[in-house]
């Protein structure tokens, strides 16, 4: 089995690339601006030059930002592609959103409310839909977010590569209980997961 690349890595790299470039540009613009205001203040520079433009310069600062923008687009897009291409062996869990809770349905028909338990190291595909209005499934730790639209099936996938507890939130405004529409994601070892799946399924 080939190793699965965690899309979180690529998304974070895209963040770093774009924000880094942006900070640099912001600093350059601001510093230049402040320097000009200081250097060419009316006290120091009483007579302005008459410069109305320079097509070479304008061409440069049209083309260069275009290239930068294109590179950012590509970085962003390829990280998105990682979020969309689900590995074949993914564990599929049905997710139904409703005002104001999350229902997760496992392959063995087991249902949980506001608690998603997944095994470590196995990619998980969430099939998302909604019962009433539009909600948004948002797991910040895995950089995934997808709207739960009534009548439509959307999906998202993630690679739980570390055990622990993460939070799930609703990202699309859905009414009074919007902010309380949270759930817990527990990443456990495969053995724990299997045990959990069996025992709790028997309970209900």
């Amino acid at each position: 089995m080939e190793t699965i690349i965690n899309p979180v890595v690529k998304v974070d790299a895209a963040f770093v690339y774009i924000i880094g470039f942006s900070l640099f540009l912001l600093f350059a613009i601001t510093a230049t601006m402040v320097w000009f205001v200081f250097r060419y203040s009316r006290k120091r520079h009483p007579r302005a030059a008459d410069i109305r433009g320079d097509w070479r310069l304008e061409l440069v600062w049209t083309l260069v930002p275009t290239l930068i923008a294109m590179s950012m687009f590509w970085v962003g897009w390829s990280s998105y592609a990682g979020l969309r291409n689900v590995p074949d062996n993914a564990l599929t869990i049905e997710t139904v959103a409703m005002m104001y809770s999350w229902i997760f349905i496992y392959p063995n028909e087991k249902e949980t409310e506001d608690e998603l338990v997944v095994p470590l190291g196995k990619p998980v595909r969430l099939e998302v839909t909604s019962d009433d209005v539009i909600h948004g499934l948002f797991i910040p730790a895995f950089r995934i977010k997808v709207d739960a639209v009534p009548g439509v099936h959307t999906y998202a996938w993630f690679l739980p590569d570390e055990t622990g507890t993460y939070f799930i939130q609703c990202s699309e405004f859905c009414g009074v209980g919007h902010a309380d529409m949270t759930a817990v994601l527990r990443v456990v070892t495969e053995a724990e997961y299997l045990a959990w799946l069996e025992t709790e399924a028997a309970d209900e």
């Binding site: 899309p7 690529k10 998304v11 895209a14 963040f15 774009i18 924000i19 942006s22 950012m72 687009f73 970085v75 962003g76 897009w77 390829s78 990280s79 998105y80 592609a81 990682g82 979020l83 910040p140 950089r143 995934i144 977010k145 997808v146």
Partner: peptide, 10 residues
């Protein structure tokens, strides 16, 4: 940042 597809999702 928002225009880039991957970061936008987050």
């Amino acid at each position: 940042v928002l225009g880039a597809a991957g970061p936008n999702i987050q």
